[in-house]
Amino acid sequence: MTKGQLEAKLSEAVSKFEVEYMGRGPKLIRTYVINDLIIVRLSNFLSPSELKLTDNPQGVELFKKVRSALFEGGRGYLETLITDIIDVAIISTHSDISTKTGEKIIIITTDKNIEQLISKK
């Protein structure tokens, strides 16, 4: 599998997680594999009600707390989707959402240099 093919498969897995676990998938998703990192950038994934909620500081705080709790609850499922695609152990998973741009970033650290794994095949 090429790096581009792997990144596409990882994007599909994260999109599946977002739809099945978080309730709504992104309109645009792009995944980057860099050494031992998987960086996923999701755009336009907020629902109209979430966008309305983030109109004020209290809503932003509530939104981020709820989304963070949901993500933490589904972390194991997301990590399983990733490790089903590539044979790595996941060391850590981080996520943040910009309520200003409607963008979400997920960063996953693995125990292996994924780029080296791909080049050996």
Rank of each mutant, 00 (worst) to 15 (best):
Val14Asn: 05
Thr80Arg: 08
Leu62Asp: 13
Lys104Leu: 13
Gly25Thr: 07
Thr93Leu: 05
Ile86Lys: 04
Thr101Cys: 10
Pro57Trp: 01
Thr110Met: 06
Gly74Met: 02
Ser98Thr: 10
Leu81His: 02
Asp55Ala: 04
Ile106Lys: 00
Leu51Lys: 15
Ser98Cys: 07
Glu18Gln: 15
Val19His: 13
Leu70Lys: 14
Pro48Ile: 12
Thr110Phe: 04
Asn44Glu: 10
Thr101Val: 10
Ile91Gly: 02
Glu18Phe: 13
Ile86Pro: 06
Ser68His: 14
Tyr21Trp: 15
Ile29His: 00
Lys65Thr: 06
Asn113Trp: 13
Glu20Phe: 12
Leu53Ile: 12
Lys64Gln: 11
Gln116Ile: 11
Asp36Pro: 05
Met22Arg: 12
Thr109Pro: 00
Thr93Asp: 08
Asn35Thr: 07
Lys16Asn: 07
Asp111His: 09
Arg30Phe: 00
Asn35Trp: 02
Asp87Leu: 08
Ser49Tyr: 03
Pro57Tyr: 00
Lys52Arg: 14
Thr80Asp: 13
Leu70Ala: 13
Leu51Cys: 01
Tyr32Arg: 11
Thr109Phe: 10
Phe45Met: 11
Ala13Trp: 10
Gly73Glu: 11
Gly102Asn: 09
Glu61Met: 08
Asp111Gln: 09
Thr99Tyr: 07
Val88Glu: 01
Ile39Leu: 14
Phe45Pro: 01
Leu78Thr: 03
Arg41Glu: 15
Thr99Met: 04
Ile85Pro: 06
Val19Met: 06
Ser68Phe: 15
Asn35Gly: 05
Thr99Gly: 01
Phe45Asp: 02
Ile34Ser: 02
Lys16Gly: 06
Glu20Val: 14
Lys112Leu: 05
Thr31Met: 09
Lys121Thr: 06
Thr83Tyr: 03
Arg41Thr: 15
Arg41Leu: 15
Asn113Asp: 15
Ile118Ser: 04
Arg30Met: 11
Thr110Tyr: 03
Thr99Trp: 05
Glu103Trp: 05
His94Lys: 14
Ile97Phe: 07
Arg67Ser: 04
Lys120Met: 02
Val66Pro: 00
Arg24Ala: 13
Phe17Val: 05
Ile34Pro: 00
Asn56Phe: 09
Arg75Phe: 01
Leu28Met: 13
Thr110Leu: 09
Gln116Cys: 00
Asp55Gln: 13
Val60Ser: 03
Arg67Glu: 00
Leu78His: 01
Gly102Trp: 11
Asp96Gly: 02
Glu50Thr: 08
Leu46Ser: 02
Thr109Asp: 00
